[in-house]
Design a protein around this nucleic acid. Sequence first.
DNA 1: TATGAATGAGCCTTCATTCAT
DNA 2: GATGAATGAAGGCTCATTCAT
Lengths: 193, 193, 193, 193
Amino acid sequence: MSPRSPADNARLREESRARIMTAALERFGRDGYDGTSVRAIAETAGVSVGLLYNYVDGKDGLLRALFEASMADVRASFAEADAAGAPAERVERLVRASFAILRQRQTFWRLSYGVRMQEGVLASLGDRVLAWTDEIRHVLEGYLRDAGFPEPEIEAALLFALIDGVSQHYVLDPARYPLDDVIERIVARYRHP
Amino acid sequence: MSPRSPADNARLREESRARIMTAALERFGRDGYDGTSVRAIAETAGVSVGLLYNYVDGKDGLLRALFEASMADVRASFAEADAAGAPAERVERLVRASFAILRQRQTFWRLSYGVRMQEGVLASLGDRVLAWTDEIRHVLEGYLRDAGFPEPEIEAALLFALIDGVSQHYVLDPARYPLDDVIERIVARYRHP
Amino acid sequence: MSPRSPADNARLREESRARIMTAALERFGRDGYDGTSVRAIAETAGVSVGLLYNYVDGKDGLLRALFEASMADVRASFAEADAAGAPAERVERLVRASFAILRQRQTFWRLSYGVRMQEGVLASLGDRVLAWTDEIRHVLEGYLRDAGFPEPEIEAALLFALIDGVSQHYVLDPARYPLDDVIERIVARYRHP
Amino acid sequence: MSPRSPADNARLREESRARIMTAALERFGRDGYDGTSVRAIAETAGVSVGLLYNYVDGKDGLLRALFEASMADVRASFAEADAAGAPAERVERLVRASFAILRQRQTFWRLSYGVRMQEGVLASLGDRVLAWTDEIRHVLEGYLRDAGFPEPEIEAALLFALIDGVSQHYVLDPARYPLDDVIERIVARYRHP
DNA sequence: TATGAATGAGCCTTCATTCAT
DNA sequence: GATGAATGAAGGCTCATTCAT
């Protein structure tokens, strides 16, 4: 009797939510968290401000939701890449997987890097981000140790820094950055201990 | 009639200006650009808001001035490190100089990284930052080429990314980051093509 | 074709309407008019927001309806109490009736007192409230005159103020207020001119 | 050297603050706490919104400040009225003092009555208001006991309710309420136990 | 040179109300 | 009769900036 069936509503909700999340990622990614107003996000999403608050728990809830979604996604990609192979290969696969994910989710990484230095914003994110980077470093370290690299701890710090640095430079100017060449060079370097 | 000679005035001016710049760097570094109010800077500097505007062209002018000062400073340090030596040595010196500067000007780098992903803030900085990083990359490339590294362009991208990545990780947690070990490893790696 | 007869529909309507009114009174009474959102009322009533608007003319319409219903109710109670008796008795009966009604409709009175000083809200209520209090005062005056009290106008103002004051104090802390004792004292006082 | 001397500033501050407090009392008194926007207060005060926040700690801080100022004032008036006299006289003096204060600070009482039923608003006021009314009731009780009234507790409840009720009715329509006559009647009634 | 009172645009958020996938 | 997604005006508050009873 209702003009919209529950299924209609579910679809509507999903669409709006997706529009909002996409818009938020785009704006946060481009202008940073503080540099983006909720209004701007709503406008980009083609949605009223009020509606945004039906789907998301405020501006920092939005950021949180974005991180949750993206991190789940990233974790899944890693898990997949991680499946098997000889220790030496594992490093290569992880490197390639990292950059594949970077390419796929450029904007998210931009946002992530932009937010990393802002104590205030970080607070609302809780331990999510920090725990996350620690985890990566740790995985890296294990791989390098298994592959026979000396001082894997230091080496992991280097490799992580390298991936992070390349990622940021890429994300700052994706069109001109020679990412593929850089990847090959990194892979080559970490092929043998 | 004035109790202050022109020279006194000049000194006073310089002192006040320096206090403001220091305060700004400190607050921007700690709380981020957006997270810092002009009032907070003035307070930290022990100066009235009004006076601050006598010395500096608004909040973004302050950021601009900070970048200018720091970049001049950094440039000078590099120039010094750069003075002489065999091509192979040059890379090592530049790496060491970079991290020496990082240690000296931690807060500035923190700020710089925090601001790097915000189009809006960046705009007010003009080309300064981009030109700057391009310059570094270019210098690096020259050094690596002279030292006989193959594909110096790619190699420069890697080295730069590595330095940048390490710098950020260091700045995020200076107390626990094994910077010295990392430096030695980097230097060792770039000793021979 | 319809599974509901017109009579069923009428009953449904009445039920829903009653649920809404009860919910509104409860929430308005507890949290005040401004402190209560239409959504909260709908939720308490177990009804969708949309439906609420089918039964009631907006938030202030709801308030209006509440006043209408309660005032009708109060009027009825008074009329009943008023039926007969010697003039002297009438005052006593009216006093007792007032407080009986107060006890019965505590929440309504709470709301009523909460709203009494807000020009804006009052406006939407129109003359209803003012007319109402005037009426009471007038009735009181008649009774006191008939019972032989001197200056019944002033005396009515006093008695009305007394009832109103007691009512408010009671409503602020019903559990601890010695309402019965107070009633007896009032009745005793107004037994003889 | 400054274009405004410290004394100038002090005067400026005092003026602005007074304007804001007066405006707030007026608007809160007329439209209630929730019915009044900070913007409206600023406008009435002839001041920018921003300035208001230089003097007052938010909207509820404003209410608090208003209560503090008014209650101090009221307490002083009471203390003065309370000075001496035979027990029987004391009641009379307190009644007269109450209504004198009511007349002086009509708007404040309007506000106070408007706020009394709003749990939410009250919370921000802390115990201030409740403690205050309790105190009055208690003082009243003592007076009545000393003057030889039987059941002074109940009698105090009545007298307090009477004063409160009259005050509210007066405040709702000061121009037409026969306050003086009512006062005399009250005084007469409480002259003898 | 140095002060701080004053401004007002803009931010995040709530909420009464409408209307149709 | 009944739903809830969607709207947008308005609210409290902050803050970069100006300017002088």
